[in-house]
Design a protein around this nucleic acid. Structure first.
Lengths: 113, 113
DNA sequence: AGTTTAGTATTGGATATCCGATATATTTAT
DNA sequence: ATAAATATATCGGATATCCAATACTAAACT
């Protein structure tokens, strides 16, 4: 088996969305560059976002003031701003309120394999 | 206080997405008409989707074969198809794999108020 | 020096999700 | 019968999210 599980994409409904939210969540755990963020997203979503997806998203988050960019040589490190951390708190509340029941009812079933 | 909590929308990131997934989840619990589905979404998201949001989404799900429509008088009742139920299972797996950690780390904190 | 690789970035095109506005049909109320 | 309310539906416009393709820069390699 591979190192991480490989979630299949359903054909019943669209699973896009919440990319910027998930980026903020990941960056809140650890400041990372674009490739590292893409890798973390790939682990969770099954497919790594392409450059045309991830870099515009990061640019928007910078414009919103949610993350800082610091370029050093070849890589750009993204760090959560204070503003971003406050917003993320609200976003997590919103997210858990909207989707929490799905985990409570379904989430526990997949861990016991 | 009001009957349901009122999640605030963050300004740090976009919280759109997964509408069709959430509709399938709701309909899997109970066949409903458009207004009932909108009301359930409103409870979870804080704002009810407008007709311009919900009806095109339901139409797409019907075209995909995930739900059936049955019009009776003024209302149209939406029911999950077998195909939709299979897809929803996959979608839940995908969703929990992608976002589960956020609940595990954050979700429990909001229930104790 | 020259080549390759890694990381970043933009462009163009597609789709889903959002709203506000408008419209229609059915039911209920007057 | 008429009016009001309910439920459904479409249209136009905006934005986020997705990909494929292309391009650029800095580092590493030969």
């Amino acid at each position: 088996m591979s190192e991480e599980c490989c979630p299949e994409l359903p054909d019943c409904c669209d699973m896009r969305g919440l990319l910027s939210f998930q980026i903020l969540w990941l960056v809140s755990k650890k400041s990372m560059n674009g490739q590292e963020i893409s890798n973390e997203l790939g682990k969770r979503r099954g497919t790594k976002p392409t450059p045309g997806t991830i870099y515009p998203a990061l640019k928007d988050l910078r414009i919103k003031g949610s993350v800082n960019m610091e370029r050093k040589g070849r890589t750009t490190t993204y760090t959560l701003t204070d503003n971003g951390r406050e917003g993320l708190e609200i976003a997590c509340k919103y997210f858990c309120n909207a989707f929490g029941e799905i985990f409570q009812e379904y989430g526990g079933l997949t861990t016991e394999k």
